[in-house]
Amino acid sequence: MASEKKKGRILSSRHLLGLEGMAGEEIANILDTADALKEILDRPIKKVPTLRGVTVVNLFFEASTRTRLSFELAEKRLSADLMNFSTSGSSVVKGETLLDTARNIEAMRIDVVVVRHQCPGVPGFLADRLSSVVVNAGDGAHEHPTQALLDLLTLRQKFGDIKGLKVAIIGDIAHSRVVKSNIYGLKALGAEVMVCGPPTLIPRDVESLQVKVTHNVDKALEWADTINVLRLQLERQKSGFLPSLREYYWTFGITMERLSRLREAPVILHPGPMNRGVEIESAVADSDYAVILDQVTNGVAVRMAVLVLLSAPEIAV
């Protein structure tokens, strides 16, 4: 039985900790599965029994609305039993350590752990200590693989193929987990990537990720087929990375005025939630260039695909 199961596996890892090192073929398989599952979301009865009897815990140590809701919906559509565990703060202020939390999960015989944590590496920390499958729902500034997968799915739907696509990621590159997962996924599928932001928000040695770098948003817009506009955490101004949000908007904000100067406007992604009037003008966010709501729908499909492939791989085939 075990070998049969193994034969059916599409993913090489038991967990989804990140997209770093994942082969393009593997990523394409997840996207294909998501495409197939997406149809369920349009049915009158939006539920299949695929994960009946599978218990999933959504372990959110950091505030998140849309990622948690998206996972929750994906789990419900697949008939998994789910529990939500939301808490803020680190072990330093909280009574229970992460290690104790992990041991409790183990004792409760949970099949899948979806984890969001402010510290990079926490999904791996849990994967090393649990027999459950671990899905990274965002770990600090490290990775956010399902966000990148839903971005990829959206781009694939829009452009047909990702190979050769020019993608500019604009904003706070230094503190973003979305950037890294996107870079790994896009490169694996053959896209070119440029990052753009103020020098204070570009991380050290970013070129080692094999991306182009610019501080000029107009150049990025001119180059790109599509742009991914990152949310600017408003506390960056207070911690000295930026003089003001106003200046950020005038220097890096995606506005209709900027887009009007281009021969062709790019397809615009945003991982949400948006700061209208900071990184993106409302008129742009609400325009036809933006595929932000497609991303939200695709998010549910991608998370369904990941859950099925990791926890019921024999069914997926």
């Binding site: 990079p120 490290h142 990775e143 991380p203 990720l209």
Partner: peptide
């Protein structure tokens, strides 16, 4: 480069 990749 490593801290950038690890997000630390």
């Amino acid at each position: 480069a490593v801290s950038t990749r690890l997000g630390l």
